[in-house]
Design a protein around this nucleic acid. Structure first.
Lengths: 108, 108
DNA sequence: GCACCGCTTCGGCAATCATCGAACTGTCGA
DNA sequence: TCGACAGTTCGATGATTGCCGAAGCGGTGC
């Protein structure tokens, strides 16, 4: 299986990364990956079709947020947290730590 | 002049904020504001029409990134950095500190 | 080889977005 | 009162996006 194209760390563009992270479904994917969860494409059950999921994976991959590694007939997804931190220090952490909903417990 | 609606800090939504920041024109606006530059709407010369600029201001305002204060026949724009930092700590700083283009000097 | 599996790619569709010119609103100064 | 000024709002338009089912494609295992 061909390795899909990934931008190098220096090719990352902030608007593209922010746009990739600005979709709730993609945000959920990123959070799952950050939790160290399993990372094949099929493990994401967001109520979306395979085609749509694949689309989101592509947006994340082409912006540099995520890496896709072919492994047999599966594809292993992983966060490019190292590259993101190098290029946009603190961004990923800020996005991930904003998990808490606007509820009261955010004040604790 | 009527004060336009601003979401409260608790109403901020991460995807909306990220989307607001994911447009190059809006990112430029935010950076100018962060530089402490003058802040009436008319001072932004991004090669866009008044109507388009006004649209971008609205996106920024409705997501919580920016505050608009009527002042005579002008409108003073300001970054809601305090509110953003409270709700999404580190996010704004990460976005702003990513100013440097993908050039070599980014490594310094 | 062949069927299955995991995922991508390909149209296509409806919704949203960025953009504009034109018309409008509210404010200030003459 | 009457412009000039600063912005907003109103259509309209073309581009992008999110979504899907169907078809395609490389790997695995029978």
């Amino acid at each position: 299986m061909r390795e899909p194209h990934h931008p190098s760390c220096g090719e990352f563009e902030l608007p593209a990364v922010l746009h990739a992270l600005s979709d709730p479904a993609r945000l959920q994917i990123v959070r799952r990956l950050a939790d160290g969860d399993e990372c094949t494409c099929g493990t994401f059950d967001l109520g979306l079709s395979k085609a749509t999921l694949s689309h989101h994976f592509r947006v994340l991959r082409e912006s540099g947020v995520v890496r896709t590694r072919p492994d047999g007939r599966k594809r292993m997804l992983s966060l490019r947290d190292d590259d993101l931190n190098e290029r946009f220090p603190g961004l990923l952490e800020a996005v991930l730590s904003a998990k808490r909903p606007p509820g009261v417990e955010a004040l604790l």
